[in-house]
């Protein structure tokens, strides 16, 4: 209990949010650094993984290969990747560019599999009859993707992004090992000085940040589910992707 009180004492001491904060500096700045790093890495991962996931989900091509490959990527330990890339880049770059690049690439690799899985499994979950009906109506493949599949798959797509953001927020703490900022620096400074208040305080901050961001995504996912549910259907539990656009009523499924 004392341990938790000490950690909360560190977090809620106004001094630690201002210029006179103990190492590694004001908590607000570190929080922002952490969020910026997360946003950058997830942002780049989205640009890579969403189009790829849509392609796989729409065409069904390369599915086995990509599922296997992303599964393997999930198993890579980010800290190991971080040191691998850092050592690699340090041959030709100076310390800080090498460190930053290594952190960003390792976290992108962490972020991709969940986004990719959400995208292709979302598209695959769309009722085949719906797609056939769209095709029969004369929609082009591109129109089917944008106007039928993606809107119906939205809850699962957002779910994938949500999982990926959560993982990146939690794992971005390792960036501090090679001098890149974020909340991990609080934990590592705590370890270095045997200060359990800061070790636990930093961990609690990461947890709180993850929960808040996850809550925001839960809301977004709910909105996506509400948005994709057919008019009149009161399906708000995130399972709306199964709601058919065809003539059959949902109860007969």
């Amino acid at each position: 209990m004392d341990l938790i009180l000490g950690a909360l004492g560190y977090i809620f001491d106004p001094v630690n949010w201002g210029a006179g904060a103990v190492q590694p500096g004001a908590i607000g700045g570190l929080l922002l650094e952490h969020l910026r790093l997360t946003a950058l890495c997830v942002g780049i991962a989205l640009v890579i993984a969403l189009p790829l996931g849509f392609y796989i989900g729409h065409t069904g091509r390369a599915r086995q290969f990509v599922i296997g490959f992303t599964g393997a990527m999930r198993a890579l330990p980010t800290l190991g990747l971080l040191y691998f890339f850092f050592t690699l880049f340090a041959f030709s770059l100076s310390f800080l560019p090498a460190a930053n690049l290594a952190v960003v690439i390792s976290l992108i690799i962490l972020a991709i599999p969940s986004i990719l899985a959400g995208a292709y499994s979302g598209l695959e979950s769309v009722d085949r009859e719906t797609i056939d009906a769209s095709r029969a109506l004369g929609m082009t493949e591109f129109q089917i993707l944008w106007q039928v599949e993606i809107p119906l798959a939205l809850p699962l797509i957002v779910g994938g992004i949500r999982a990926s953001v959560l993982q990146v927020i939690a794992t971005a703490t390792v960036a501090a090992y090679i001098g890149v900022g974020g909340l991990g620096r609080i934990i590592l400074t705590g370890i270095g000085t045997n200060d359990y208040d800061r070790i636990l305080g930093g961990a609690l901050l990461v947890t709180a940040l993850a929960l808040v961001v996850d809550g925001a995504f839960a809301l977004l996912q709910w909105l996506a589910a509400v948005g994709t549910a057919p008019r009149g259907a009161r399906d708000t539990d995130g399972d709306a992707t199964r709601a058919p656009l065809s003539a059959e009523p949902a109860t007969q499924q």
Binding site: P24, F86, A90, S94, F95, L96, A176, Y177, I178, G179, R185, L188, T189, G192
Partner: peptide, 21 residues
């Protein structure tokens, strides 16, 4: 101050020799 968490190991030496610190 630049925090490099390897106890004066190769990363710290790298940062010193390439002029980062």
């Amino acid at each position: 101050f630049l925090a490099i968490e390897d106890f004066g190991g190769p990363d710290t030496v790298q940062a010193l020799t390439d002029g980062t610190v």
